[in-house]
Amino acid sequence: MMFVDVLLTVLTVAFALLTVFSKKTVISAFALLMTLVCIGGIYYQLGSVFLSAIQVLVNAGAVAILFVFVMMLIDLEKYPNNTERSKIKLIITVLTSLVSLGVLALIINNNIDTITVVNLSDSSMKALFDRLFTQYYIPFELATVLLLAAVVAVVVIANNNKQHPGKE
């Protein structure tokens, strides 16, 4: 099984890099999709069918489809300036990577024990549910409020652009 783990990790990293470095946006979108599916595979290897199914269902099945939709609907090859390199972009890239690395380092430094003992088997899912529906019930409920806000935003923004009647 070690072999499968290594293969999945390599694939995930390769697709993630392809997502960032590909010049063609559609290929980026598909690489992103593959990255998400591979992460689902990693969850499965860690022993949690539940998490991998959620990952595939929500991230790969629904979120990635939005990206693919956009890439396909508008011809992004018409806008060549998105491959332009500028100093600002470089600075922002370096800053974001540094910040995320710093956060990661902080987390690992402080909670190294909790990170290493995470057990993702499906029996622990029962424990997760117990926690989720007692201690963390309010955040769980608030997630739907967040989604409601998103729904309202989507509808309002889409209806704002009625002056450009689309074609079917």
């Binding site: 929500v58 489809i65 939005l66 939709f69 609907l73 989604l147 729904v151 989507v154 509808v155």
Partner: peptide
């Protein structure tokens, strides 16, 4: 696109 994004939100 709107259908897709609303599907995503309700699906979650």
């Amino acid at each position: 696109y709107l259908t897709a994004i609303l599907f995503l939100l309700f699906d979650v």
